[in-house]
Amino acid sequence: MPEHQRADARRNYARILAVAEEEVAAHGAAASLEQIARTAGVGSATVRRHFPTRHALLEAVSHQRIEALSDRARELTGRGDSRDALLEWLGEVVAYSATARGLAAALAYDVPDPVHENSCAAMLEAAAAPLLDRAVRDGAVPAEVTFTDLITLIVGIVLATEHRPDPAAADRLFRLAVAGLSPLTGGRPR
């Protein structure tokens, strides 16, 4: 939120964001913008002024989580085996996205509004690029794999499992995607 805004606009923004965090935690990405406005004590136009799209609201709600995941990517950069470091980080993104309702939707690239860049995904991409680049350089990941591919895979898994009663379903599907369906013989897929 720009610092040059009036004090009442900053207060409204903070109140809307606090209510939105609660609503998204309770209802996920489908949280009602009207309910957020009512609970925050502002009009829906005020919500739209601060957050012109639902995606912009989800990004704001997810910002701290994205910063934590970005910090973690930087911590893992250059550590140990490049494939293991990348998979450890991706596993953490899956776990975080599966427990933080609305985060997977904030990371999705299918935003129909090309004017507003996906800042959540852009932040993660900037932090994780060294992890992916190193894994590609080491031959641990095929060169054609992109960050967008990896986030799309994670978003798909998380959205497909978000209503399952088993909290480990997203991680299990992610591990399956990483391992593939081929049984291992001597450490290599058949």
Rank of each mutant, 00 (worst) to 15 (best):
P2M: 06
E3M: 07
R15E: 11
A18C: 01
A20P: 08
A26E: 13
S32F: 08
R38C: 07
A40F: 11
V42D: 07
A45E: 11
R49C: 00
F51S: 09
F51P: 10
P52Y: 03
H55E: 06
H55A: 10
H55F: 05
L57N: 11
L57T: 08
L58R: 06
L58T: 08
E59S: 11
A60M: 04
A68N: 05
L69Y: 04
D71K: 11
A73C: 10
E75W: 11
L76H: 08
R79Y: 03
G80C: 04
R83V: 02
R83G: 15
E88P: 00
W89L: 08
G91D: 08
E92L: 13
V94L: 05
V94F: 04
T99K: 13
R101L: 03
A105P: 00
A106S: 11
L107V: 01
A108K: 00
Y109Q: 01
V111I: 03
V115H: 10
E117P: 10
C120N: 04
A121P: 00
A122N: 09
E125P: 01
E125Q: 12
E125S: 12
P130I: 06
L131N: 13
D133Q: 15
A135P: 13
A135D: 13
V136S: 05
G139T: 10
V141R: 08
V141M: 14
L150Y: 05
I151S: 06
A160Y: 02
P165M: 02
P167N: 02
P167W: 00
L173C: 01
F174A: 07
F174S: 05
F174W: 15
G186N: 11
R190G: 15
